[in-house]
Structures are given as structure tokens and as C-alpha cells.
Amino acid sequence: MKPSQLIPIIRRLDAMREDQTDEVQVRRFEKDGKEMCVVRYDSQSKMFELDDRTTNQTYEFDNIDYVAVEVLELVQPATSTEE
């Protein structure tokens, strides 16, 4: 069984929420060296904003799980095989 790809994504997103500064936290997620999305977290509004680089659209989320799933869909390999 392959390890979950969601766990590292959630850890990175959670680190954004735990940051104590008032600055908007930013994380970039890549696939094969190509930036797929940028996630921002605003601690004032407690909202995540995801910029999808493949469609040039922006989405807002108030739930870390939903953001993580969107990031996973963008960065996971197009064809995955179970072992």
C-alpha cells in the first residue's frame, strides 16, 4: 500500500494556519517542476485562497480538507496505479 499523498499537503496547509504572524501565508505546489497552484491563508478571515495555475481561476475555502483535496487533484500523477 502506498502512503497517503494527502498527509504532506495537509501538514503544509496546517503550518500556514499555525503561523503566529499577521502576514498572509503563501505556499506553492508543483508537479514535475511546474507550478500547479498557489495557496494563500489569511489568518484574519481564516480563509484559504487557491489560485489554480492550470485554469487561471481562484477559489476560496474555509475548510482545510477541501483545499487539500483540490491541491492533491492538481499535483498527483495523471495515471496512478495501485500496488
Rank of each mutant, 00 (worst) to 15 (best):
residue 29 F to K: 08
residue 35 E to D: 06
residue 75 V to M: 05
residue 28 R to T: 02
residue 31 K to I: 02
residue 56 N to P: 03
residue 45 S to W: 04
residue 83 E to P: 10
residue 74 L to K: 13
residue 62 D to L: 03
residue 52 D to V: 05
residue 71 V to H: 06
residue 8 P to L: 04
residue 67 V to F: 02
residue 41 Y to S: 06
residue 13 L to M: 07
residue 69 V to A: 03
residue 35 E to P: 00
residue 24 V to I: 15
residue 63 N to G: 01
residue 17 R to M: 15
residue 3 P to T: 04
residue 20 Q to E: 13
residue 19 D to C: 09
residue 24 V to W: 03
residue 65 D to L: 07
residue 57 Q to K: 15
residue 50 L to I: 08
residue 58 T to S: 15
residue 69 V to E: 14
residue 14 D to S: 09
residue 30 E to P: 00
residue 41 Y to T: 01
residue 39 V to M: 10
residue 27 R to G: 00
residue 29 F to S: 08
residue 1 M to H: 11
residue 20 Q to R: 15
residue 10 I to Q: 15
residue 63 N to C: 09
residue 64 I to T: 01
residue 2 K to F: 04
residue 45 S to K: 07
residue 20 Q to V: 09
residue 25 Q to F: 02
residue 5 Q to S: 04
residue 72 L to C: 02
residue 81 T to W: 10
residue 17 R to E: 15
residue 68 A to M: 00
residue 33 G to R: 02
residue 27 R to V: 06
residue 80 S to M: 12
residue 27 R to E: 14
residue 10 I to N: 07
residue 72 L to F: 14
residue 35 E to V: 07
residue 9 I to Y: 01
residue 79 T to R: 14
residue 31 K to E: 13
residue 27 R to Q: 12
residue 63 N to H: 13
residue 62 D to T: 13
residue 62 D to M: 10
residue 69 V to H: 02
residue 82 E to F: 02
residue 53 R to N: 10
residue 69 V to Y: 03
residue 51 D to P: 01
residue 28 R to N: 14
residue 40 R to C: 14
residue 44 Q to P: 03
residue 33 G to D: 04
residue 59 Y to L: 06
residue 68 A to P: 08
residue 52 D to L: 00
residue 16 M to L: 12
residue 74 L to I: 06
residue 68 A to C: 00
residue 4 S to H: 01
residue 66 Y to M: 10
residue 71 V to T: 10
residue 2 K to Q: 11
residue 3 P to D: 08
residue 16 M to N: 13
residue 12 R to L: 09
residue 1 M to A: 07
residue 49 E to P: 01
residue 53 R to V: 00
residue 28 R to A: 03
residue 74 L to E: 12
residue 49 E to T: 15
residue 76 Q to F: 01
residue 2 K to H: 10
residue 81 T to E: 13
residue 1 M to I: 10
residue 22 D to T: 06
residue 13 L to V: 08
residue 15 A to N: 15
residue 40 R to S: 10
residue 48 F to L: 05
residue 78 A to Y: 09
residue 63 N to K: 12
residue 17 R to D: 05
residue 16 M to D: 13
residue 26 V to I: 14
residue 51 D to F: 11
residue 58 T to H: 02
residue 50 L to M: 11
residue 77 P to R: 11
residue 55 T to P: 03
residue 83 E to N: 11
residue 80 S to C: 09
residue 5 Q to E: 06
residue 49 E to M: 08
residue 41 Y to V: 04
residue 30 E to I: 04
residue 46 K to M: 12
residue 10 I to P: 05
residue 26 V to E: 11
residue 7 I to H: 06
residue 8 P to C: 03
residue 63 N to Q: 11
residue 75 V to N: 05
residue 1 M to L: 06
residue 32 D to S: 08
residue 73 E to Q: 15
residue 46 K to A: 14
residue 50 L to Y: 02
residue 14 D to E: 15
